[in-house]
Design a protein around this nucleic acid. Structure first.
Length: 424
RNA sequence: GGAGACGUGUCCGAGUGGUUGAAGGAGCAAGCCUGGAAAGUUUGUAUACAGGAAACUGUAUCGCGAGUUCGAAUCUCGCCGUCUCCGCCA
């Protein structure tokens, strides 16, 4: 969530930023928060002063007792009890005011970086770069879900039997390809200096709140009701929450972690060609990269991360483009997001395979992830993350783009990991 | 899952109702000392919110939450976690 420093000292910037994210009545919302904050401070002061008085009176009770002044003690006690009644109502006012302020604050998304283009939807995203060659397919080329069936490497119907739609079963070379891609991505991340983490894939509500999935996206996560745990929608959740309530030394920054996990998303309301085959699943595999950075370095780091993801796609020889998302298409928590899309030649569609974002202090403010600067002051760190990469659509594009009448060619970089060069 | 013990600051560790945000020690930082270092010595060493230009002051925090009390690290209840024994198990 936004910080009070942002809201108080850069009110105008915040309002303009919110407008860029197409938030209606941004000014009114910000003013309402500032008013709610004043209200909270007022009650806080009143309550603190009253408590200070009660504390000091209580202290004198102790002293008087030792001196045996019982009559005065009784008098003091009744006086304190009166004050305590007052305090009780002040406490509840304060609690309500804080709750109200929090509710308002949680509804405000992050404000976009100044370079973010204006726009309302995906059509206004800015194409930064296009790379690779879009292949010309042979006459009998098929979409990946048909190829998967032809070569018996992914079984969607079997997944329906075992679980339900959106839970495919990878078989034989299909399963090996998955494992090879995961290993490849992890190895590349390791070479880029990321520490590999194997986190839990069920998390508690505090973690869901920390990275912003809760309360806004409650319905999008699977929930293990008996224990109150959420199945993670991305490794970002556990890997970023490692730094919840942590104060780092400036010298420890940047922290670079990566991890492979399955990801679970309910994706309620999706339909049609968007969910065909591997295009959108309830369970999928992803390698995520996460950094906790010094505020002055975070945008350089964002570019590094974009470079890292690009290199993965280059090495897989997949055609892709990089988009800078416009204000209206960005996620709630992000200040600047680059999306990567690969071209899936048989479907003739661009498929999103990665999203790399700088959250600045939006997540760390919730997480209370801070560092000590040179003056020993605690400051909020910046958090960033990106998919590097999400598997299903990569697999879809690999299958479709690399198909020949004789079979599917595996990119050379994976040969050592798959142990085969073609699927036929 | 059953029985028992425990949960204090960066760490160790004292504290069973009243100037205890918390003894003592270690670590760390700065000053003194030294040719330099060690030793010695002095001082400092949490977080959040509020007030203040600042020095600083107030409030809260001894696993978390509620309660008893004029007053709780200390008493009561609930939850979470750790350890030991038993059971189960990859």
């Amino acid at each position: 969530m936004l910080t009070f420093v942002q809201l108080r000292q850069h009110t105008e910037t915040v309002i303009r930023g919110l407008e860029k994210k197409n938030i209606k009545q941004a000014e009114e919302k910000v003013q309402a928060i500032l008013a709610a904050d004043d209200q909270r401070k007022h009650f806080q002061k009143e309550a603190d002063d009253l408590k200070a008085k009660i504390n000091s009176l209580s202290k004198s009770v102790g002293q008087l007792m030792r001196q045996g002044e019982t009559a005065e003690v009784e008098q003091l006690k009744t006086q304190i009890l009166e004050l305590k009644n007052l305090e009780k109502s002040l406490e509840s006012d304060l609690k309500n005011a804080t709750q109200h302020l929090n509710d308002l604050l949680l509804l405000l998304p992050n404000i976009p970086h100044h370079s973010v283009p204006a726009g309302t939807d995906a059509d206004h995203n800015q194409v930064m770069r296009t790379a690779g060659h879009i292949p010309v397919l042979h006459a009998l080329a098929k979409p990946h879900w048909e190829l998967a069936k032809t070569y018996d490497i992914i079984d969607f119907e079997l997944g329906v039997k075992l679980t339900g739609a959106g839970f495919p079963v990878y078989k034989g070379k299909g399963a090996i390809l998955q494992r090879a891609l995961i290993t490849f991505f992890l190895q590349e991340a390791q070479l880029a200096g990321y520490t590999e983490i194997q986190p839990p894939i069920l998390v508690n509500a505090d973690s869901g709140f920390g990275t912003g999935q809760l309360p806004d996206k409650d319905g999008q996560m699977y929930f293990a009701n008996a224990d109150g745990y959420y199945l993670i929608p991305t490794a970002e959740v556990p890997i970023t929450n490692i730094y919840r309530d942590v104060i780092l030394q400036a010298a420890e920054l940047p922290i670079k972690n990566c991890g492979y996990t399955p990801c679970f998303r309910r994706e309620a309301g999706s339909y049609g060609k968007d969910v065909r085959g591997l295009n959108r699943l309830h369970q999928f595999d992803k390698v995520e990269i996460v950094q906790i950075a010094h505020p002055e370095k975070s945008y350089t780091i964002l570019e590094d991360m974009v470079g890292h993801v690009s290199s993965l796609l280059d090495k897989l020889h997949l055609p892709y483009r990089i988009l800078k998302l416009c204000g209206g298409d960005m996620s709630f928590a992000s200040a600047l997001t680059y999306d990567f899309e690969v071209y899936s030649a048989a479907q003739q569609r661009w498929l999103e395979v990665s999203s790399v974002s700088n959250f600045e202090t939006f997540q760390t403010n919730r997480l209370k992830c801070r560092y000590k600067d040179q003056n020993g002051k605690t400051q909020l760190a910046h958090s960033l993350n990106g998919s590097a990469l999400a598997l299903p659509r990569i697999v879809a594009a690999l299958l479709e783009n690399n198909q020949t009448p004789e079979g599917i060619t595996i990119p050379q970089i994976l040969h050592a990991l798959t142990g085969f060069k073609t699927i036929s």
